[in-house]
Each structure stands twice: as C-alpha cells, then as structure tokens.
Design a protein around this nucleic acid. Structure first.
Lengths: 145, 145
DNA sequence: AACATTTATATCGTGTACGATATAAATACT
DNA sequence: AGTATTTATATCGTACACGATATAAATGTT
C-alpha cells in the first residue's frame, strides 16, 4: 500500500514554511509599531467591525480563548483595546478600539503596503493560490477539526 | 494610493489558517505516538538522511537553534534521538535515530496515510497549490528574511 | 422555582518560535 | 604564532497556540 506520498509530506511542509515566512515578514514590518502578527490580525478584524465580543474575534480568527485572551490582555496594556462587560450578557465582554488604534490604521496599512505588497511575488499567482487555500480551509471547516 | 489590498490581507490570513489547520490535523494523528508536528518534521528529515548535524536539520526545516534545540532535547528524552559530538568539528553534534525511531517509521506513515491522505481534499489541486507555495518560499529565500 | 446543561471567559501546563546574548571551537588574517 | 572573525551550539525572554480545567452567567427542563 502506498505510504504517505511525497506530495503530502511536501504540502504540509511547504505550508508550514510559507506561513512561517509570511509571519516573519509581517513581524518585521509591524515591529516599529510594537505589534505582533496575531495582534495585527485582531486589529484587522476590529478595523472592519468594532465592538466585538471575545468569542466573535475568536471565531473570525479561528483562535481559542486560551490563545486569544493573552493577546487581548497585551493589546489592552498597549492602550489599543478597551474591554467592557456586555450589558445583554454579563459573561461576555465587548472589545473596542481606542482612539490610538483607530488613528494608526492608515500608517500601519501604509507600512504593510510598502514592505509587503511591494514584494512583487505577491502577484505571482496569488489568485490561484488564494482559491486553493480557501478551498483547503473550507474543507477543514467541514471536518470539525 | 492603494491601501493594503484585500487580497494581501486575505492571503496572509488564509495561509495562517491553512497552516494552523494542517498542524492541528497532524497533531491529532501523531498524538498516539506522543509526537508533535515539529517533532515529526525532524523525523521526516532524519528518515530521509540519518546522522545530520543540528545546523543541517535547522537548514532543512528553516528553524533556528533557539527553536530546534528544545525540540531535539525532548526527542532525546523520548528515546528517539541520540546526540554525539562530531569528530571533525567539536562544536557540532551529530543527531542519529534510535532503533525505536527507525522501527516506528512504517506505523507513523501508515497513520498519516489513513487520517491525512484519505482526506480527499488533498487531491483537489494540490499540484497547483504546491507549485505556488514553492514559488512563494523560493521568493522568500531570496529575501534574506 | 429548582436543577441540569450550555455558554463566555479565565487560567494553567506543555510545546513551539523568534531574536538576543553567551561560549567555545574553527578559520582567517597579519 | 597570535589575534580577529566566523561558526555551531546553548540559554534566555517574550509571545503565541492548543487542550484541559474552572467559574459564573444564561438557558433549558421538569
């Protein structure tokens, strides 16, 4: 019987490396803002829709509370987020952007544009790549992983 | 001027999620063997070529010593690896598979085959995906990231 | 209303992952 | 040979990332 194909081994590995490379690239770009990549993802979510519950952010990023909570705590300490107990549900907490976090949006997006988008390789075949990745993640979401 | 494109934001995010999903899938498959995904990657490397130096494994996996060393230490404690000081270069250490690690290769490959390869989504468009990912990682390697 | 279950968050333990610093051995240079 | 630089590994500090457990509030059941 066929053993794990080379293909599969390479796929998981290429994905692992690509994600790591991308994270490193973003990390360097975000360092001047004293931001990590996961923290930036939280900002992306809240820039799109502010005043979300912890679980909402977790759902959108696919992160559990054990990962998200420390990230949020640090972002509160940084003065980027504010946490308020929800009125409707006293178990839940509403996360909101501070003025600082709202104002730095443009500068951060510009930095990403300069350093990341200008890496021409993004254009390569990003459409196909994205399509495949989305299909992949869709398949995972149907797997109750 | 165009802000960071939606495309880019989605690309980095889809990659992040896909890698995380894959790692989780592998983690579950490898758990019965008391193996983590990065530890499995070290085994993959050494199954292909045994008796490598720490730096060789690091190069092939794209991992620094700060990440790799704790992984190797745990694998030694697990009885999977043996570490011997190199004769040619007394700074370097040769990592070798124990008999246990050699013998469990088949069983682990079978487990991966059953749980991962049988996820039909692998077939989808893995060829295209792989090609794009390799291109991406090649571009990164030219960036002294 | 009393109780059981579910849900939202919190905390803990283990294991990456990276950058910075430290150390000893090897190599290059004068 | 003696010194400077590079190289291979080790250790540390910070920050994810996940699963397990804990707690309190909300919901469902009888």
């Amino acid at each position: 019987m066929a053993l794990p194909s080379k293909l599969d081994q390479q796929l998981c590995f290429e994905l692992y490396k690509a994600s790591s490379n991308f994270t490193k690239l973003y990390a360097r770009t975000l360092e001047p803002f004293n931001l990590t990549f996961p923290q930036y993802l939280v900002l992306l979510v809240l820039w799109e829709e502010d005043h979300l519950l912890t679980k909402d952010i977790g759902n959108r990023l696919g992160l559990g509370i054990g990962t998200l909570n420390p990230i949020i705590s640090r972002m509160i300490a940084q003065g980027r987020l504010i946490k308020r107990q929800s009125d409707e549900d006293k178990r839940a907490y509403v996360l909101s952007l501070t003025q600082k976090a709202q104002e730095e949006k443009e500068a951060i997006e510009q930095a990403i544009y300069d350093k990341v988008i200008n890496c021409n390789f993004i254009d390569m075949s990003a459409i196909t790549l994205m399509k495949n990745l989305k299909q992949l993640n869709l398949a995972f979401s149907d797997m109750d992983l």
